[in-house]
């Protein structure tokens, strides 16, 4: 990176950490104007800013509202930079994510989606109040290796087990792994329903997702 472009990338990262959408947009446009490599701007600027926000969250400096606002700034930048990406960018791991049927609380799900995107996943977000069967059909359609399920309500946790049962019925259990999380979820519940992973927060979820996806691609 040359001397003019490096500060621009650092500023981009900082604008994300500062939750400043307008500044992120302005800097992303400057990157285009000055011919900064788009992939570098996304990975070293926007994604690094989001990583830093995740670190501040782990350290108790930032909380969920701040993380969501950082992610909005990041997405503003991505919207500007993405159309300029070369078409043959590397193939990413794919994952389907959503809140199970009966629940509309999606903050946790959104955070996991953001952190998994930052970690390099191509995410298919089915939103909130999603029937079990739709997770499986979407995962089949796009060739996802992970289904990530979230709920905040104890009354809707059973929807997670339904997804696992459908995967078993369709003999997809070894190809598609299931991660779960949310307020009432515990490792004990994950063990009970046979989920592959339970994590307590979004940054841990992203790390575990990478391990799972790598494991699957290496045939483990």
């Amino acid at each position: 990176m040359d001397n003019i472009k490096e500060p621009l990338i650092n500023d981009l990262s900082e604008a994300v950490v500062e939750m400043d959408e307008e500044r992120t947009e302005e800097l992303a446009n400057q990157c285009i104007d000055k011919g900064v490599d788009v992939l570098t701007a996304i990975n070293e600027g926007l994604a690094k800013g989001m990583e830093q926000a995740g670190k501040l969250y782990d350290e108790g400096e930032y909380y969920i509202p701040e993380l969501l606002m950082c992610s909005d700034a990041m997405y503003k930048g991505i919207d500007i930079l993405k159309p300029h990406l070369p078409k043959d960018s590397e193939t990413k791991f794919k994952a389907v994510i959503g809140v199970v049927q009966g629940d509309t609380h999606d903050i946790g799900k959104n955070l996991v989606k953001i952190m998994m995107e930052t970690a390099g996943f191509e995410m298919y977000d089915l939103g909130r109040d999603v029937p079990a069967v739709e997770f499986v059909s979407k995962a089949k359609e796009v060739g996802a290796c992970i289904i990530a399920l979230s709920t905040l309500m104890s009354t809707t946790m059973c929807g997670m087990e339904d997804v696992i049962k459908i995967l078993e019925e369709e003999k997809l259990r070894d190809k598609i792994k299931v991660m779960i999380g949310g307020g009432p979820i515990s490792q004990k519940f994950a063990d009970k329903i046979g989920a592959d992973a339970y994590t307590t927060d979004a940054t841990k979820a992203a790390k575990v997702a990478v391990e799972i996806a790598k494991g699957l691609s290496e045939g483990k």
Binding site: Q101, G102, D103, T104, D129, T155, T156
Partner: peptide, 13 residues
């Protein structure tokens, strides 16, 4: 609100 059914109760739509 989506009032739901026997299995899944009301939630905001």
């Amino acid at each position: 609100v989506n009032l739901g059914d026997k299995n899944i109760g009301p939630r905001i739509s």
